[in-house]
Structure formats: structure tokens, C-alpha cells
Nucleic acid binder design. Structure first.
Length: 178
DNA sequence: TAACATTCCGCGC
DNA sequence: GCGCGGAATGTTA
């Protein structure tokens, strides 16, 4: 597994590559301890470098609120079949659009597995590139987010998505916060 | 078995 | 109509 940093305006992301492709992505850390385990000294293969270039480009586009045209190959082998189906659906959501957990569940033919869909999103190894942040609750409220809710808010805001402010119980209230 | 990044239904105000 | 409690439901470690 190869570990490579990606510099962006929002901080230093870290990408992980396996033999198959991009296997993971981490949000910037708070503290500057990133050098600690930058162990992998060996120069990445040409293939990995090519993937990394694509990842970097794609990541920056998403951070700018766009849908990347090209993604590097993704290594999703770590997930279960159900999770991979969910992630595949997520990849189909365009920038500026959103789906509810319920809609995603329906999209994979199990409209009642809403909660399971939530779990699958949380298990997503590659946030941002797999747009797990575009999944909202049924009433367009923010659900949750592994990497911190702030990121979800920020990403949605950049894409011009309207969502409901705080957490759980805002369904009957048609109050959209822009 | 327990834990979830959910949803829906029903009741009291 | 609004707000809250609680049950239902599928997948995972």
C-alpha cells in the first residue's frame, strides 16, 4: 500500500493506493504530525503516479464544487457487496444534486435498508471522490459524516446545495438554509 | 448480539 | 400544525 499526500487549499489530504487503484482517502489532519509515518520511501510505480495525478485533479475539482471528468481506478475490494452497490450509486450523483438515504436504498432495490445505507456511507474509504456528502436525510437535513459534519456542510455549500440546518427533527419544518 | 450517517407513525400540546 | 418518543428495518463487526 502506497501513501501519498495531496496539497489543497483546504489542507493536506492523504491518498492510499493498492495494486488495484485508489484504495483510501483521508481528510487533512489537525496537527502537523503527518510526517510521522511517511514511511514508504520507495518511489511509487509509474502506474501509481499516474493514478495520483488523476486523484489530485479530481479531488481539487470536487473541492471547487465540480464533478470530476476522470477518476483513477478505485479499489473498493475492502467493502462488502452491499456497500459497493451503494457506492456505485453515489458515484452517479452529479454535482449540485443530492439523494436521500431512502432514495439510495431504493436505487439498489431495497427501499427499507435506509439505515444500512447510512452505514455503507460511513464505511466509504474514499470520501469526497465518492460523494457520500451528497446523501441527505429524507427531509434534506444533514445526516452525519465520518470526517466531521463541517466538511459535509462545506462541500454542499460549494456545490450550491440547499439543506436543512440542524439535526434530526426538522422534517415538518420547510425551512431551508442557504 | 448490539450498533448505526434513518424513517415513519401516533400522540399531546 | 408542531414537536417528541419509540418501533421497524437491513447490514456489519
Amino acid at each position: 500500500m502506497v501513501r501519498l499526500p495531496i496539497e489543497t487549499k483546504d489542507g493536506e489530504f492523504v491518498a492510499y493506493y493498492s495494486e488495484l487503484g485508489l484504495a483510501g482517502l483521508e481528510f487533512p489532519k489537525e496537527k502537523g504530525e503527518s510526517d510521522r509515518f511517511s514511511s514508504d520511501k520507495s518511489t511509487p510505480s509509474a502506474e501509481v503516479r499516474r493514478w495520483h495525478a488523476l486523484t489530485t485533479k479530481a479531488l481539487k475539482q470536487v473541492l471547487a464544487g465540480h464533478t470530476p471528468e476522470t477518476l483513477p481506478p478505485l479499489d473498493l475490494s475492502s467493502g462488502t457487496e452491499f456497500q459497493q452497490r451503494v457506492w456505485k450509486v453515489l458515484c452517479g450523483i452529479g454535482s449540485g444534486k443530492t439523494m436521500s438515504y431512502m432514495e439510495v436504498a431504493a436505487a439498489i432495490g431495497q427501499s427499507k435498508a435506509t439505515r444500512a445505507v447510512g452505514s455503507a456511507c460511513g464505511a466509504n474509504p474514499i470520501p469526497v471522490l465518492i460523494p457520500c456528502h451528497r446523501v441527505l436525510a429524507a427531509n434534506q437535513g444533514l445526516g452525519g459524516f465520518s470526517g466531521g459534519l463541517d466538511w459535509k456542510r462545506k462541500l454542499l455549500a460549494r456545490e450550491g446545495v440547499e439543506y436543512i440546518g440542524s439535526s434530526t427533527r426538522q422534517r415538518t419544518l420547510g425551512l431551508a438554509i442557504v
